[in-house]
Design a binder for these strands. Sequence first.
DNA 1: ATCCTACGATGGACTTCGTCCAAGTCAAGA
DNA 2: TCTTGACTTGGACGAAGTCCATCGTAGGAT
Lengths: 136, 136
Amino acid sequence: MSDLLRRLRGRGWRMTSQRRVVAEVLAGDHVHLTADEVHLRAAARLPEISRATVYNTLGELVALGEVVEVSTVGRAKRYDPNARNPHQHLVCSGCGTVRDVHPGGDAIGDLPEEERFGFAVGSVEITYRGLCPACA
Amino acid sequence: MSDLLRRLRGRGWRMTSQRRVVAEVLAGDHVHLTADEVHLRAAARLPEISRATVYNTLGELVALGEVVEVSTVGRAKRYDPNARNPHQHLVCSGCGTVRDVHPGGDAIGDLPEEERFGFAVGSVEITYRGLCPACA
DNA sequence: ATCCTACGATGGACTTCGTCCAAGTCAAGA
DNA sequence: TCTTGACTTGGACGAAGTCCATCGTAGGAT
């Protein structure tokens, strides 16, 4: 939506048709797409867009904090456009569905000083695993 | 260690020199190695061992629950031989090093009922990210 | 102890995911 | 409208991992 586009413009992003299309694809559905899926959907609107541009743009969106990379075990990275609303993921071990969840608690605070090994801990990523109603 | 080897043998694993070497490499240090590092170390003892065999063996160890795959964003998978002792991970965003940590708190309990969407939540995986002293 | 055979190992081709680069294009400020 | 440097392109490249036909061998059978 233009919300995202407006924010990007406000940060001095040079607006090109390619970047607009990628941003629109991401904002369109709140699904977790792979880079290739983003490219596919972007190409539906702008056939000449190149893979390199999609990768570049996704990387920039991640750097700007507008999108989060979701690490999936073994497969291609997925991009989560819901970055402004901090959340975690609940994954069905049966069918792979991903849902956004908002646990309470303070996971970073739960890591004791002596377990930090001098690291500057900046973020925490929590993945709940289980079976969805359909798979149970 | 022969602990691991004994368990594997007990499960009907056909013991070959390649599998023994891979298991020994993993059990040797409690470090989180990539498949390539495992191959490198295994080849130091058994020069002819192939990459495919290392991948196969690691996959089997994971399937048997003896080793856990650590998903790292954008880097090669790492293999954690410490699967029998539940723990979480602290990952350096700079160099990719992984350390085992034991946070307090009750992450599963922190997920409210209305955020579970009817899932039977069985486990939680927490990854802390930050910069290690060397990369900071 | 030796023989058999199905399971495991091999290595090279292949796939997937992603990055890099030189050259061309174009958004937006002057 | 002109200029310029940021952006895009496509193809080569690279890293990680899988596949497969063939060969070797662990370990049960004899």
